[in-house]
Design a protein around this nucleic acid. Structure first.
Lengths: 225, 225
DNA sequence: CGCTAATCTAGAACAAGTTTCAGACTTGAT
DNA sequence: ATCAAGTCTGAAACTTGTTCTAGATTAGCG
């Protein structure tokens, strides 16, 4: 799928290591571990947003396969080359989309956090709430989740960002101020379950009830530490 | 990636619904829900095996991306069209590969089942044993696991088969004769964790120690029911 | 053995992700 | 305002998964 011709492999990985936003060309072999947020001009910010919006729309209409790079470029009024400068691969694009959505969700949750019950119950409630949101746009969810788990090393940094945000959301829900390693592991298991169960639902192999049951089961781990 | 042009979509899904082995053309709109195992001639069986072996070799050498359909066809001495008749997509091929490996693993485990300790400990030990096997061929694991989780509805049947086998392996390890729904849910959470944790390790985002910790955490659920 | 349907082969063709390139455009610093 | 560096555009090219076709081969059957 991903055009990788032997020697280019290294290049590719290297480039993808940073990237996510258009970068200055490598004027110097700078040691910048991660510019974090290269300042984007207003127009660039707008372009980036147009791209993300366009792909969100396309994904919502037809899932992973409907997000076609040429079309994203066209719809967002940007040249194909430019699209690739902002997002070095389709996977990067979709993962960025997920990050975007997660941030929105996190904001909503912060304004209206789940109260009452045990930590496990709060996490379950939070995740089921997120799940209901996804159910409204299953194809969008499909595109994002499939991209997220299919991502290879070249997208590690971005996937990691998504993962950290997800962890934060779950931890927030637990209300745990200073989680132990065991609790962190439990959170990761919940996260694994969340992604994987979502996939089984999206590909029609599990019912909603089953997803809920599995999430509840995994969440139980939180109270056991 | 997957060439799907509007109208063909339906076709594709329909076709993929069965298929996994070369099928007689639809001479009659037979109601055969699932021929399960169309009799293959000896030469066909041999071809199928050559194909699986070739892709296993290729995957072991370079992971998911290294399994290129043209090359699989060439290495296994079969025309491209034939390859596609046996495995209707690259994902089908890789999932079949996984099924193959799983069956081998299951056989090994049956001959030498994990004894002693609690059910959770036995499951942990079993999975860590499988994990060690995968560590020996990380690229092979990469190809199989990525295909498995990336698979869409069209591959449901095959993925389901793999999933059932995995469940069987875990249940065998528990030693539970007649698992309750809660226990089955726990097994699924373990399975989710297994796949997802594997992915994070394969894409370099988690250490082996962490994978182990998460698997142990998930396995704990088995003893709590 | 001789037929017919099914299968296989070689190779072209097509789709979508990705790369490349020449030229027009912006931006930032002077 | 001007120039160099960095961006963006449009279009073509390349790679790899997938489909299609026409002609050989093979398998099963009478």
């Amino acid at each position: 799928m991903t055009k990788v011709t032997g020697a280019e492999r290294a290049d590719r990985a290297e480039r993808a290591g940073r990237a996510e936003r258009p970068g200055r060309a490598d004027t110097a072999a700078a040691v910048d571990a991660r510019p974090a947020a290269l300042p984007l001009t207003e127009r660039q910010e707008a372009r980036r947003r147009r791209i993300l919006d366009a792909s969100t729309r396309l994904a919502g209409g037809g899932g992973f396969d409907a997000v076609q790079m040429r079309e994203v470029a066209e719809v967002s009024g940007v040249a194909l080359g430019t699209l690739y400068r902002y997002f070095p691969s389709k996977i990067h694009l979709l993962v960025a989309m997920m990050q975007d959505q997660l941030e929105e969700l996190h904001g909503t949750l912060r304004r209206d956090p789940p109260g009452g019950g045990t930590p496990a119950q709060r996490v379950t409630r939070t995740l089921m709430r997120a799940f209901r949101a996804l159910q409204r746009e299953p194809l969008l969810a499909d595109a994002m989740v499939r991209a997220l788990i299919f991502a290879d090393r070249g997208v590690s940094a971005e996937v990691d960002r998504v993962s950290r945000r997800t962890t934060a959301i779950i931890l927030d829900a637990t209300g745990l101020a200073d989680p132990t390693p065991a609790q962190l592991s439990a959170v990761r298991v919940i996260e694994h379950t969340w992604h994987s169960a979502l996939i089984t639902w999206l590909s029609g192999r599990a019912s909603i009830a089953r997803v809920r049951a599995d999430i509840e089961t995994a969440c139980r781990l939180i109270d056991l530490t």
